[in-house]
Simulated scan of single mutants.
Amino acid sequence: MAKLEMDIQKYHEEVNEVEMITKRALGKMVVRHVGNEGIGEQSDLRRLFQACIDFIQKTNPIIWSDASITIYDDENDQIFTIKSGKARHQYICSMRDNEPTITQRAVNEAGRCCQM
Results as ranks from 00 to 15, higher is better:
residue 4 L to M: 13
residue 4 L to G: 04
residue 5 E to K: 15
residue 7 D to W: 08
residue 8 I to K: 15
residue 8 I to H: 10
residue 9 Q to S: 15
residue 9 Q to G: 12
residue 11 Y to D: 06
residue 12 H to S: 15
residue 13 E to T: 12
residue 13 E to A: 12
residue 14 E to C: 11
residue 14 E to H: 14
residue 16 N to A: 10
residue 18 V to H: 04
residue 21 I to G: 03
residue 21 I to L: 06
residue 22 T to Q: 10
residue 22 T to P: 08
residue 22 T to V: 09
residue 23 K to L: 15
residue 25 A to C: 07
residue 27 G to K: 10
residue 27 G to D: 08
residue 28 K to P: 01
residue 28 K to T: 09
residue 29 M to I: 06
residue 30 V to C: 02
residue 31 V to P: 00
residue 32 R to W: 06
residue 33 H to T: 09
residue 34 V to S: 01
residue 34 V to G: 02
residue 34 V to E: 01
residue 34 V to M: 02
residue 36 N to P: 08
residue 37 E to S: 11
residue 37 E to T: 14
residue 38 G to W: 09
residue 38 G to N: 13
residue 39 I to G: 02
residue 40 G to A: 09
residue 40 G to F: 08
residue 41 E to V: 11
residue 42 Q to R: 13
residue 44 D to T: 14
residue 44 D to Y: 14
residue 44 D to Q: 14
residue 46 R to W: 05
residue 47 R to P: 01
residue 48 L to R: 04
residue 48 L to I: 09
residue 50 Q to H: 13
residue 50 Q to R: 11
residue 50 Q to W: 06
residue 51 A to D: 03
residue 51 A to V: 06
residue 53 I to A: 07
residue 53 I to D: 03
residue 54 D to V: 05
residue 55 F to E: 04
residue 57 Q to M: 11
residue 58 K to P: 01
residue 58 K to W: 04
residue 59 T to E: 12
residue 60 N to G: 03
residue 60 N to T: 05
residue 61 P to K: 11
residue 62 I to Y: 12
residue 62 I to V: 11
residue 63 I to D: 00
residue 63 I to H: 03
residue 63 I to S: 02
residue 65 S to L: 00
residue 66 D to L: 02
residue 66 D to K: 00
residue 66 D to F: 05
residue 67 A to L: 02
residue 67 A to N: 02
residue 68 S to W: 00
residue 69 I to F: 04
residue 69 I to K: 00
residue 71 I to Q: 00
residue 72 Y to T: 06
residue 72 Y to K: 05
residue 78 Q to T: 13
residue 78 Q to V: 11
residue 79 I to H: 01
residue 80 F to R: 01
residue 81 T to S: 12
residue 82 I to H: 00
residue 84 S to E: 01
residue 84 S to M: 05
residue 87 A to P: 03
residue 87 A to G: 07
residue 87 A to E: 10
residue 90 Q to S: 14
residue 90 Q to R: 15
residue 92 I to T: 10
residue 92 I to E: 02
residue 92 I to L: 11
residue 92 I to Y: 02
